[in-house]
Design a protein around this nucleic acid. Sequence first.
RNA 1: GUCCCCAUCGUCUAGCGGUCAGGACGCCGCCCUUUCACGGCGGCAACACGGGUUCGAUUCCCGUUGGGGAUGCCA
Length: 459
Amino acid sequence: MQYTTRMVITRFAPSPTGGLHIGSVRTILFNWLYAKHCNGKFMLRIEDTDIERSKQEHVQDIYDTLNWLGLKWDGDVVFQLKNIKRHQEVAQKLLSEGKAYKCYCTQEELAAMRELSVKEGRTPGYERKCRDLKQELDKPYVIRLKCPITGKTEFTDLIQGHCCIDNEHLDDMILLRSDGTPTYMLAVVVDDHDMGITNVIRASEHLNNTYRQKQIYDACGWTTPEFAHVSLIHSEDGAKLSKRNGATTISEYEKMGFLKEAILNYLIHLGWNKSEEEILTIDQCIKLFDIRHVRSSPARFSMPKLLNINSIYMRAMSNEDLCLALQNFAGSDKYDHAGWERVLAGMSELKSRTRTLAELETMSAIYGNDGTYFGKIEADEATKNLFKNIIEENNWPDDIESLTAWLNEKIASHGKTLKEVAPAIRMALTKEKVAPSIFELFKVLGSKIVAKRLASSIA
RNA sequence: GUCCCCAUCGUCUAGCGGUCAGGACGCCGCCCUUUCACGGCGGCAACACGGGUUCGAUUCCCGUUGGGGAUGCCA
């Protein structure tokens, strides 16, 4: 048990080799929430040691995404590449202490051994050929950790519980490559230790690495942080969420018109639920969050659920805020000033019918545009006369109640019922079979535009 | 192949030895209603299987099956 008063420090450590995966966002969220819950810190470390694949644009993308989501990191960003000297020092120290050794085996030899192991049904791995070499050779070498051969390596994972492996299944891992650069395994451990990370919360694909990393901590004589391995997100067909079976990066969801609050709320409930309430504010999440109650099994991504959560957030927004969000999303030059005024006026009815900003953008066109492009409709003489009559009028009642009464009276005076003419009116006004109520349409569009559209529909 | 992890309605989950196994999404029905939504009410639907432990297992242990992950001088 730890009774230290050490401040909790978590971290997110991505390699900048692509867009941020939605699963990574969940990992970030858990790290961030745990840190906030404990009054600790959340740090960002860019693992840019893979020089071939690391790109500055992806680093920027990580910054942008974290900022967009409001999951701000504490302190300066750490770049792993800058710590290479330190990694090498640690490896050399282990070497001088006899806890590591030089291995001269070539990659070809290793590959052949691996193949043989699999063929013979053994756990594949390096078979410690150079471990007890007496003299140094004049050949390129890697530095390997002298791992325990017998016994077990175990730790308690905050999410997965007790994790254990027989050491015979682990081989002597490489610490320093033949070109002298550190491997991921070494770099992560050294950096996490140097940054004072107390809780490593990461994807469960790293669970197997953790046994190895534990051995490095032990060899260095360092305290291991607490680990928490978050399960992966699967797609709706049950396989690992990949580009082939769904949207993977967070920016794709942004482009589909999802609100960041909805994405966050959705992701946090993928594996965690501690409240009767489904919709929680970020402050409530901070208060309630406990990494120990995150489920250890993988969860499937559900688009219908995300759409539902998003629609709840959209409806909860004020019309003004939503209108602003829509302008941000669609571009404020999409409609002219008057057009945006109408969109705002009709927003209440618009938002109850749409689930994303993209859907809202599409439906907002019925108010935003003032054109008469809605085209001809089929209508009988009485309906046409009704339209003509409405077109001639220009002094409608202002409030929706009087307007309703006024319009109903007009319809009745032409020997029609609302039920009979409503579809035609809606089609003439919106070109859609589905839209807000026609009274609402009249009110928001105003007499001029209604007249224009009705006229063009019977022209 | 070998190793590691996981297993409650279709999906996300609550449960932490005794519950009519609760909620949410989706689905179905009804109400509201000029359409479609929103909203309201109701319904269908789950403890993977087999052994133990126990007075009693969804819950604890062991198998089986199924799913996922790892098996790099990538991270």
